[in-house]
Design a binder for these strands. Structure first.
Length: 474
RNA sequence: GCUCCCUUCGUCUAGCGGUUAGGACGUCGCCCUCUCACGGCGAAAACAGGAGUUCGAUUCUCCUAGGGAGCGCCA
């Protein structure tokens, strides 16, 4: 209520923006919006080996697609390396950190010993209180935090509650590597502090890091931001999310035809609930969202529910924006260019006209494109196998009769063609379905489509008569 | 192995000592109907197990089991 809220999303650019990262970004964004604050974006690129520009581009692209905008310029952590070293110098001077000259072999030995003795802390304090004059020549030291040996470190987490660690389980972590570059643990603390971050919201794989970082904050005399560690997302089978189990980049969801609004709605309900409400507009989400209401257990990713929500958002989207979204997604899907080549002013207008019937039946933009195929197809129409089965000799004759009846319709519309067909059915003692299905097959090449009279209207008199002629016989 | 976290229908969740344990997705049935959808109605479906605390535990405590995260000069 008092201080301005500043959250941050801090991905490391070693891969795409995966679904878990997207949710973390969403939660940070929602909380910042709710509190009238800011969400900052920081790229954690201190690992020069693994960070790539392609990953940075993918992350920014993913956030933009999800419409999760950040405030201010993107902060690149590596650019702050000098500042990180400066802080360590202060700690060295204050005696809250020290240089460690232990060799890789010595450290490996310590790790082994600790494991054998069932201890979590492995570093044995070798250089903690040692005289620097003992330093071996030619060894580049690391700098370690002089962490408290006894007592406990406590985090009051907004999601997890009070979490306590005995300090004898926590190590003297490395602040500065042998080459003088800062470690993640140090860089996060310094950057969060310098950027004025008030609320840290991240995956609960960082929960233990909160304790380590708390010790650094304490050593520096800085105040720890509010902490919220949100549970991870698991694959559909409960396993850790892997590339095989839905750990796709958000670009993959775009290519599967999901809408950003649907993905946001799905993600916000994963690990968080607000009574019985399932559908949240962006405004409602911001209004209702709160940190303590986030659940503590991991959630499984369920494509069926995402798809259901996506269908809801498609049905409620306006027709024009669906046409736009449909055209946009073509850039990201296989054979999208082929479909795009079929779209011109005429077919675009037909898509718009057909959209009310189309969107009622589509769960993704891909399904929308597929079911709009009858508008984009060239004659003679490809006929699906199931539709082919409908085209018996009898139905081909019927189609010829239907065509003749339709040819008399002058003022062509869904209403007039329907009236003509109902009259025909009545005269011949047929159910409407008996004439509708042959029409559908001849006009769309399929056994399912939007209402057949809407199809008639969208296609227009001439095209309909031609398509019917293609399938008719005497 | 050690440290920490988690455990309500198949899945996402509501519940915050007393409820016929609610909703949604999915599944199944019925209705609507020119197909498929949409929509409507209905059904099956859960408190991991065991001890406590309490007049009373899904709810509080502990233990067990199961799951997860971490244990780097990665982030």
């Amino acid at each position: 209520m008092t201080l301005p809220v500043v959250t941050r999303f801090a991905p490391s650019p070693t891969g795409f923006l995966h679904i878990g990262g997207a949710r973390t970004a969403l939660f940070n964004w929602l909380y910042a919006k709710k509190r009238g604050g800011k969400m900052l974006l920081r790229i954690e690129d201190t690992d020069r080996e693994r960070s790539t520009q392609a990953a940075i581009d993918a992350i920014l692209d993913g956030l933009k697609w999800l419409e999760l905008g950040w405030d201010g310029d993107v902060v690149y952590q590596y650019a702050n390396a000098a500042r990180h070293r400066e802080v360590v110098d202060e700690m060295l001077a204050a005696g809250t950190a020290y240089r460690c000259y232990a060799s890789a072999e010595e450290l490996a030995q310590m790790r082994e010993t600790a494991k054998a003795e069932g201890r979590t802390r492995f570093y044995n304090g070798l250089w903690r209180d040692r005289d620097p004059s003992d330093a071996p020549a030619g060894v580049k030291p690391t700098v370690r935090l002089k962490a408290p040996l006894t007592g406990e470190t406590v985090i009051e987490d907004q999601v997890q509650g009070r979490v306590v660690w005995q300090n004898d389980n926590l190590d003297d972590l490395v602040l500065l590597r042998g080459d003088g570059s800062p470690t993640y643990m140090l860089a996060v603390v310094v950057d969060d502090h310098d950027m004025g971050v008030t609320h840290v919201i991240r995956g609960d794989d960082h929960l233990i890091n909160a304790a380590r970082q708390k010790q650094i904050y304490d050593a520096l005399g800085w105040e720890l931001p509010s902490m919220s560690h949100i549970p991870l997302i698991h694959g559909p089978d409960g396993s850790k999310l892997s590339k095989r189990h839905g750990a796709l980049g958000v670009d993959a969801y775009r290519a599967m035809g999901y809408l950003p609004a649907a993905l946001r709605n799905y993600l916000v309900r994963l690990g968080w609930g607000h009574g019985d409400q399932e559908i949240f507009s962006t405004e409602e989400m911001i209004e209702a969202f709160d940190l303590p209401a986030i659940g503590r257990s991991a959630a499984r990713f369920d494509f069926a529910k995402l798809e259901n929500l996506n269908g809801h958002y498609i049905r409620h989207a306006d027709d024009q924006s669906l046409v736009t979204m449909l055209e946009d997604v073509l850039r990201y899907i296989p054979h999208g260019a082929d479909v795009a080549a079929k779209i011109n002013d005429t077919t675009r207008a037909q898509l718009l006209q057909a959209m009310p019937g189309l969107k009622e039946r589509a769960k993704t933009l891909l399904e929308l494109i597929d079911s709009a195929g009858f508008i984009l197809a060239d004659r003679p129409l490809p006929i699906e196998p199931k539709a082919q089965a409908v085209l018996t000799a009898d139905t081909r004759k019927l189609i010829a009769q239907l065509r003749a009846a339709l040819e008399t319709v002058t003022s062509w519309s869904a209403a007039t063609t329907e009236a003509a067909m109902r009259a025909f059915a009545e005269q011949h003692g047929l159910k409407l379905g008996a004439v509708a299905q042959p029409l559908r097959v001849a006009l769309t090449g399929r056994t399912t489509s939007p209402g057949i009279f809407d199809v008639l209207a969208v296609l227009g008199r001439q095209e309909c008569l031609s398509r019917l002629a293609d399938q008719a016989s005497e």
